[in-house]
């Protein structure tokens, strides 16, 4: 049996990679979700089609295959990405496609009355979205966004496919070197759970802030 603190450091390094992937992937997913979610309800038909193609494509193929394409096939098109960037891109676009439907659904579920009030008050289309529709749609999106972020966290483990040393990868290294399965995998179990808890707590706090004063409305 080796030096456990050294092995723990290894796993923590992996945890850092996992956290990076999760944070950056979620940020990209958020951007993609709003772009595609708003695109789905855009007045211009080509914009709607583009958004629909993106969403259906990324929901209809596995993250495993997407990652493979981003990392191994894009270079043939002259786009070479670092493993981390490739991981962020694949994870972000994949989860973004699911979250786009959340964005769209939440926007459409804001009552039509609200939209009509903004017309009667002569707000421009952008002002309607920004000041009235989105502030009411956001609290509806948040719980599902939290789930999406946790899904993304769990999906990060696929990046070992492109030689990224994330938490799961490092646990396997430790297991190979020490012969112990229980200790490294119990460690990452706790770490994954802790990260998921951080996401859940963060999203709840955000939700509370955003819905202040909205009580009794829905």
């Amino acid at each position: 049996m080796g030096d456990w603190s050294g092995y723990l450091a290894l796993i923590l390094q992996g945890a850092l990679v996992t956290a990076q992937l999760t944070v950056m992937g979620s940020a990209l997913a958020l951007v993609a979700a709003f772009a595609a979610g708003l695109g789905r309800i855009a007045p211009l038909a080509p914009v709607r089609w583009l958004a629909t193609v993106y969403i259906e494509f990324f929901r209809g193929t596995s993250i495993f295959v997407q990652l493979f394409w981003v990392y191994f096939v894009l270079p043939f098109a002259g786009i070479s990405l670092s493993p981390l960037m490739a991981g962020v891109l694949a994870l972000g676009l994949n989860v973004g496609a699911y979250a786009a439907e959340v964005v769209r659904g939440a926007i459409l579920s804001v009552p039509k009355d609200q939209y009509e009030a903004t017309i009667a008050l002569n707000l421009t289309k952008l002002q309607r979205m920004r000041h009235v529709i989105l502030p009411q749609a956001l609290p509806l999106m948040l719980p599902t966004f939290g789930n999406n972020a946790i899904e993304l966290l769990k999906a990060t483990a696929v990046v070992s496919l492109i030689s990224l040393t994330d938490m799961t990868f490092q646990a396997q290294v430790v297991r190979a070197q020490t012969g112990s399965t229980l200790i490294p995998f119990a460690t990452i179990l706790i770490l994954y759970f802790a990260m998921a808890m951080i996401i859940t707590t963060g999203v709840r706090a955000l939700e509370r802030r955003l819905t202040r004063g909205l009580d009794g409305v829905r």
Binding site: D113, E116, A117, A120, L121, Q136, G213
Partner: peptide
């Protein structure tokens, strides 16, 4: 033109 609606349509947020 301005309009007042049957169901007020105030912005709840």
């Amino acid at each position: 033109i301005g309009m007042v609606f049957q169901h007020f349509n105030l912005f709840p947020h």
